[in-house]
Design a binder for these strands. Structure first.
Lengths: 276, 276
DNA sequence: TTCTAAATAGAATAATTATTCCATTTTAAA
DNA sequence: TTTAAAATGGAATAATTATTCTATTTAGAA
């Protein structure tokens, strides 16, 4: 398989990939995916660095480029470099055109709300409390994660993140109405990470009560001092999210969860074992 | 003139230039000006190309770098490359995160990655395709949501958002290994919203195949043209998320999901009925 | 299963690119 | 001016980086 006319720019290349990408042999397909996944890195790194990240030989990159008619990898790479040089320009014009129209305008609104949340979180998050939370989670044998309703996705993500970093975590998902049984397995050596915002899901509060009876340390992520979680928890972290179109952002919550996971893993001296 | 501690990042370098730049000899001053004038070019070109553009010898670039304590020009150049890897705006928070160590710095890192994701999404999202996706979802009797592994939280959120807006949505959560049964309930009048990123969870691909057999329209959110979802779906939306500490952000995915939900609800002329 | 062609990994080599070195020029002090 | 120190240009060299080549593996056809 060899083409005579190599693609002229990154968009060309992307189009070609959409068309022919599936016919590529195994390794070359991996390369294609990786290059399209982080084009910035391709522009800024050497062939050796890129190939290492993908997990192939540098020669594979050269072969890949040659299949599409390039002389070598460097020629293909120049497409990626040009792309990076040009983007800042389309950038402005594109944003302008997006701002006022349709669904993409909604997207921008939610993006802005997320930004605002980050800003607010920087102000409200108490660094000391966060470190205490990390210390507590690091001491826990198993972390039980409680989050219902709107916060459930955050809880699911926390479970994924902890798991990916080798931290034992159980999502109290309440399947089959067994939420109480699930949380009841927790005890003094464990910890509960509870996530809840206004209006506080009643299920979460019930589960928290059981954890308290079991004397399981509770770490909460919630929105303000008056939250029922604030009084129930040993440590609680304040996080006020902005909203748009009456949907509250969860971005700061996710960022905090990621930060907590990585910090706990660091504290425990564990490395990340990648998940799917 | 030789310094012992070279600047650590581009901002550092810029500051140093403002402070000491005037004391530099003629040629080196020209170099300084040129480097600061087009930092993108510096990141993306070779020493020879840069020196030619400025009108100096390559060795001058090396000497310039060494004056500031770098081993050679390559070391200085890596500052410019790192700068380009980072988000094009929000420099203030970046600096803030450098000063504060620990978990809050991690939080800032993830916040920044989220920002970069929004920025990239604005570029890669095709407004037309998004509207088509909205139209398809609006036509569906029930929306089946498929997302496994890392993307599962996004799927859970989509289910919440659709539900809160009165759009019938079913999360294919695969409880009890019944994923195939769940998706098999879908048909021509429904729609599947599939969310998956590298490395694509095999469960998702299996479920999608069943939906395809049932002729259920598939709308996918994925990271690039080479994604197996791209070829399987009627409409697919490209969303490349940035990562930090080897955790990929999900912020743009969430924002897109929110935007889609609201747009679909608007199209159907429904009002939001608040959820918990 | 056997055979053939294609694909791959990794070492060897070629090409490119960065850096050093030194002769020459410039700058500024005496 | 004169002189010494600093700065510069450009060729020579070193280091890095990309590419080619070949033995081995893998995939697919017969």
């Amino acid at each position: 398989m060899t083409l005579t006319m190599p693609p002229r720019d990154f968009e060309d290349f992307k189009g070609l990939m959409a068309l022919e990408g599936d016919r590529l042999p195994r390794r070359l397909k991996e390369v294609a995916r990786a290059l399209l996944t982080s084009p910035d890195e391709v522009a800024l790194s050497t062939a050796a660095q890129i190939s290492e990240k993908i997990g192939v030989q540098p020669s594979t990159l050269v072969r890949f480029a040659q299949v599409f008619g390039f002389r070598g990898f460097s020629d293909l790479q120049s497409l990626f470099r040009d792309r990076l040089r040009e983007t800042p320009f389309d950038h402005r014009s594109r944003i302008a055109s997006l701002n006022s129209k349709g669904t993409t305008a909604l997207f921008n609104g939610f993006a802005q709300a997320a930004n605002k949340s980050f800003e607010q979180a920087r102000l409200t998050l108490d660094a000391e409390k966060v470190e205490t939370a990390v210390a507590n989670l690091a001491d826990a044998s198993t972390v039980y994660i409680v989050a219902s309703g709107r916060s459930f996705p955050a809880g699911a993500y926390a479970t994924y993140a902890f798991g990916a970093l080798g931290i034992k975590a159980v999502l109290v998902d309440q399947v089959g109405g067994l939420g109480k049984t699930q949380i009841n397995a927790s005890s003094l050596n464990d910890a509960v990470l509870a996530i809840s915002f206004t209006p506080y899901a009643p299920e979460t509060l019930g589960l928290i009560d059981i954890a308290r009876t079991n004397k399981t340390p509770i770490i909460a992520i919630t929105d303000n001092v008056m939250s029922p979680l604030a009084s129930a928890a040993q440590i609680w972290l304040e996080l006020s999210e902005a909203d748009y179109a009456s949907f509250r952002s969860l971005s700061a919550t996710f960022a905090l969860i990621m930060a907590l996971s990585v910090a706990v893993a660091k504290k425990r001296g564990l490395e990340k074992a990648d998940g799917s």
